[in-house]
Nucleic acid binder design. Structure first.
Length: 741
DNA sequence: GTTCTAGAAC
DNA sequence: GTTCTAGAAC
């Protein structure tokens, strides 16, 4: 493996600890932490845990407690916060703060002398409900009780905090492990310390993929994690309900950590990501063939050194020559497409425009590190505002070719608040353009060497950013062990304590040695198709039945209507009292993904045929309601429209996938599909990960721990359908029937 | 898509 | 011990 030996992080213009730049300031800056979470999400517990061991002075401002027995007000909280901050104390705002509006006053009220953070405890509704029910002493009925309704209602209005509200840092916790990591991080934060800025945590559930990966890794002694607050979706909801014993929470978290920590390294969507343009190929006229070889060579060298971090080559146009060259060469070398891929888009808008979250972006700059010129350099300096120029000046006055300079981006920069970019890495490549300084006059021997150096410096710079987060992660885990011992005293006997401690420590040590260990070769290919090269999965033999029915209806029984365009049949395994399928009779129209503008008429035909059947059933039984729609990713080949009654009263409805395939965004209402295809030429698709979401009643939205309990609930739930479903004819009712009855 | 079943959760 | 889920095989 000779090619791996050349570069460690050494001799380059990179700040070894770019995130800890707060050191030189060496003055206390109080922090305002706005906690965000429903009742029962653990906001008060969070504060208690941190304040118990922290060396930084904290004040908890709790709306429930501030009113001396009476209900407190937001204004009381605001005043108390201002006065504590003035005293140099750091502050937790312990109230729900679920909407942007609720939070805005707190952010507005304090100036730049205070660092503003948000910590969102975005835990499963079920857990919050069970806790709040328990806390208020109500017994039993976790699903139907008033607490459930209240929490569910509050959560429907939930807006997770965004950087553009004005925070330097946001931490989103989506399970108990995330919460524990955040507690440890804030506990460890001394009066002079600073946490890395940016957005940490993830919005979308991805549990299915992660569980699968975790299982795989469990067997293989996996590589370990990066980010203290990387989202892990795998925690089992049921385990919350039953294992939750507050007195043991810290100990349990440690155990859970062992079980789930594996997943944290593979939270790919949330992995540290560097977006970089091709160096020197634009204005510096470097040969594209040679440049693409070097990009792929360097990516191959680094991609496995970077743990779960991702590298993304960005260019403006989808037709970019360099992107396609690199794509082809990377594919040839079988580079893991989850860890390296190309992306067409503006590097200053990757998140807001392309939904791609990159915490670092590379800027191909000029030797003076000045804004302007053109291309990427102008665009990035422009988008980042004067903050980048100032921060860059503080680091260096110039840059030589083949080098990179890491610049932490101040949170005042729009690139930070809008795009979540925390670092810009300036890099200067070799120049082959006689119109530009230091032209190499086609000396490609030297040029290639410099270009290689440039990519090495760039990726090393990125590695140093990633590693700083690793360090922090390590630090906070060390604190777990410490904290555990202290919290432990008095509640456990010594022997047990020592044993647990050793286990945790051993585990941690193993974890952090493996920072640059590469992932197993199978991991990357278990595709979610969301980024990079997607592989269209082949249809199994069992998946051909509908295709055959559509093409040769005469060979099948069970068909209730047939025309040139469609075949209608009862679903062989109906998931409700009435469940039928309208098949499209078009060759090679296997699924919704294949549907384009030319199929709009067919979609409308399918819809009207389905609607006609729904109306027929309604005339026979007016208590039914129907939905018509498609699965985002069907299991059976041949485009088919589901017409399904909303009772879901069927023995064939057996598992989570069954339920969520009809009651999550995975189910695309026919009316919406028709609109989207008419307007955009394609329908929005949700990937299969949503199928492992928690189980929620399709009427009252209450959460349920398993299928039998859910079914018991829906058999009697009379709540009206959510407003969304009552619009645009998504739900079909009997004529004259009120939507709420 | 379903069935079967190991093993996790209760 | 029983219930329930999730993965593999088909």
């Amino acid at each position: 493996m000779g090619q791996f030996s050349g570069y460690t992080v050494e001799a380059m213009d990179v700040d070894p600890e770019p995130n800890l730049g707060g050191k030189d300031e060496a003055k206390e800056k109080p922090i305002l932490v706005i906690l965000v979470g429903a009742p029962g999400s653990g906001k008060s517990t969070f504060c208690d845990h941190v304040m118990r061991l922290a060396t930084r002075p904290w004040v908890r401002i709790c709306q429930d407690a501030i009113g001396n027995g009476k209900a407190g007000t937001k204004n009381q909280c605001l005043t108390a916060a201002a006065s504590a901050l003035k005293d140099g104390k750091s502050v937790f705002i312990d109230r729900c703060n679920l909407s942007r509006e609720q939070r805005a006053d707190f952010v507005k009220r304090v100036g730049p002398e205070v660092e503003k953070h948000a910590v969102a405890l975005d835990l499963p509704a079920k857990l919050c409900i069970s806790r709040s029910v328990k806390r208020t002493g109500h017994e039993g009925n976790l699903q139907g009780g008033k607490a459930a309704a209240v929490v569910n209602r509050m959560l429907q209005k939930k807006e997770l905090p965004k950087l553009n509200e004005g925070y330097a840092r946001i931490t989103v916790c989506q399970d108990k492990k995330d919460v524990q990591a955040a507690i440890n991080m804030y506990t460890a934060l001394g009066p002079l310390d600073k946490l890395p800025p940016g957005f940490f945590g993830q919005k979308n559930s991805d549990s299915k993929v992660q569980q699968g990966i975790m299982k795989f890794l469990k067997k293989k002694d996996p590589p370990e994690c990066s980010d203290a607050v990387v989202y892990i979706a795998s925690e089992n909801i049921q385990s919350h309900a039953t294992k939750e014993k507050d007195s043991n929470q810290v100990l349990e978290s440690c155990e859970e950590q062992k079980k789930t920590s594996v997943g944290s390294s593979i939270s790919l969507e949330n992995a540290p990501t560097l977006a970089f343009p091709s160096i020197s190929t634009a204005d510096f006229h470097f040969n594209l063939e040679k440049a693409s070889d070097i990009i792929v060579e360097k990516v191959e060298e680094y991609v496995n050194k970077l743990g779960n971090a991702r590298l993304v080559l960005v260019d403006l146009s989808q037709n970019s020559k360099i992107l396609s060259l690199v794509r082809a060469k990377a594919a040839e070398k079988n580079i893991d497409s989850k860890k390296f891929f190309t992306f067409a888009g503006n590097i200053t808008n990757l998140y807001s425009d392309g939904g791609l979250h990159c915490n670092a972006i590379a800027n191909v700059t000029n030797w003076r590190l000045k804004p302007g010129g053109g291309g990427v350099n102008a665009a990035i300096f422009n988008a980042a505002g004067p903050a980048l120029e100032t921060a860059t000046k503080a680091k260096a006055k110039s840059i030589s070719s083949g080098k990179a300079i890491v610049v932490p981006l101040p949170s005042s920069s729009p690139l930070f608040s809008r795009e979540g970019v925390t670092h810009v890495i300036h890099v200067l490549g070799p120049n082959m353009n006689p119109q530009r300084p230091n032209c190499l006059n086609n000396d490609y021997v030297n040029g290639c060497k410099i270009l290689r150096d440039a990519y090495s410096s760039l990726f090393d710079g990125f590695a140093s950013i990633v590693r700083t987060q690793e360090e922090l992660c390590k630090y906070s885990f060390e604190k777990i062990t410490e904290g555990e011992v202290q919290l432990d005293q008095g509640s456990r006997n010594g022997g047990q304590k020592a044993k647990r401690e050793t286990v945790c420590e051993a585990d941690m040590n193993k974890k952090y040695k493996s920072f640059v260990k590469e992932l197993g070769p199978n991991v990357g290919s278990s595709g979610d198709g969301s980024t990079g090269g997607q592989i269209t999965k082949a249809w199994g033999a069992w998946a051909q039945a509908l295709y055959d029915t559509a093409m040769h209806p005469e060979r099948h029984k069970n068909i209730i209507e047939m025309s040139d365009d469609v075949v209608v049949l009862n679903d062989l395994y109906p998931k409700a009292q009435k469940h039928l399928l309208v098949l499209a009779r078009v060759e090679s129209l296997d699924r919704l993904e294949d549907v384009h503008k030319e199929h709009v008429t067919l979609l409308k035909t399918m819809h009207s045929v389905g609607l006609k059947w729904a109306e027929k059933f309604l005339s026979e039984n007016s208590s039914l309601t129907f939905r018509l729609g498609y699965h985002s990713v069907p299991s059976m080949r041949q485009l088919h429209l589901h017409v399904i009654s909303q009772d879901f009263d069927s023995n064939h409805l057996k598992n989570k996938k069954h339920w969520n395939s009809f009651n999550s965004p995975f189910f695309r209402d026919s009316v919406d599909v028709i609109d989207e295809v008419s307007q955009n030429g394609k329908a929005v698709l949700k990937d299969e990960n949503v199928l492992s979401m928690e189980l929620r009643c399709h009427r009252c939205q209450s959460a349920h721990p398993n299928i039998p309990r859910l079914k018991a609930h829906i058999s009697s739930c009379q709540a009206s359908f959510p407003a969304f479903l009552l619009q645009n004819g998504r739900i079909v009712f009997s004529e004259g029937k009120d939507a709420n009855s």
